[in-house]
């Protein structure tokens, strides 16, 4: 996604802003580097770990669906590394229901847990269409759902973020937790892929 200004023009503007805010004593280079490091440490792999645990441990799955923030603590994960601490709600797919996430107003996403969201998630095309024609949008991602499957679209709010708990794929009975986690994709956690 590129805007109407060139990248180098904007880079100069950002540099000027940064110098002004550092000069005003509001931040420092070290702090900015630290924040970038922190955000890049968030990753869909965190969500995949949560999903794999829920697949192998039904009691954990229950706790996750009731109070996700508390369940994250059990795995040493948190929703507090983004701009501000956030509440997390996990929604589970089933044989009859498929969940998909969007933020129609802006770009709300469990960024502290999963890292920055993909560009398409923030695009007007996705935000405008997935609430009106989710089945068609999911098909463009390569996810064709049976007509009988109900699709529930969750429009995320500023205070409460969501994550999808995909269904465990068939033929995975012999796999360990780490191998199961490797099957889970970022798109699966958003709901634009089955897993």
């Amino acid at each position: 996604m590129t805007g109407h200004h060139s990248n180098s023009e904007i880079a100069v503007r950002v540099r000027r802003l940064e110098e002004r805010l550092i000069g005003a004593g509001l931040t420092s280079d070290d702090q900015l580097d630290g924040i970038i490091g922190q955000i890049l440490s968030g990753s869909p792999a965190n969500g995949a770990r949560v999903v794999a645990r829920a697949w192998v441990d039904p009691a954990f799955r229950e706790r996750l669906l009731v109070d996700a923030n508390r369940a994250l603590d059990e795995l040493g994960l948190s929703m507090s590394t983004g701009p501000q601490p956030q509440r997390l709600t996990v929604v589970a797919n089933s044989a009859t229901t498929h969940n998909v996430l969007v933020c129609t107003l802006c770009s709300c996403y469990p960024i502290g847990l999963l890292g920055p969201s993909p560009s398409w998630y923030k695009s007007e095309a996705y935000r405008s269409r997935v609430v009106r024609e989710p089945r068609a949008v999911l098909a463009e991602f390569g996810l064709v759902l049976p007509e009988a499957t109900e699709i529930v679209v969750h429009d995320t709010s500023a205070e409460s973020r969501h994550m999808v708990l995909p269904m465990r794929p068939g033929g995975t009975a012999g796999l360990g937790e780490a191998e199961l986690a490797a099957l889970v994709t970022r798109e699966g956690l958003i709901g634009t892929a089955a897993v």
């Binding site: 880079a11 509001l26 900015l32 955000i39 701009p83 560009s119 695009s123 269409r129």
Partner: peptide, 29 residues
């Protein structure tokens, strides 16, 4: 708004300045 431009495994930031803007905002918050 057209079709969704799906970018599998796209990088979180497409330029250094994007990461700097992100960090500046978090610092101010």
């Amino acid at each position: 708004f057209g079709l969704v431009a799906v970018e599998p495994d796209g990088p979180p930031f497409h330029a250094d300045w994007e990461a700097r803007v992100y960090a500046l905002n978090v610092a101010m918050l």
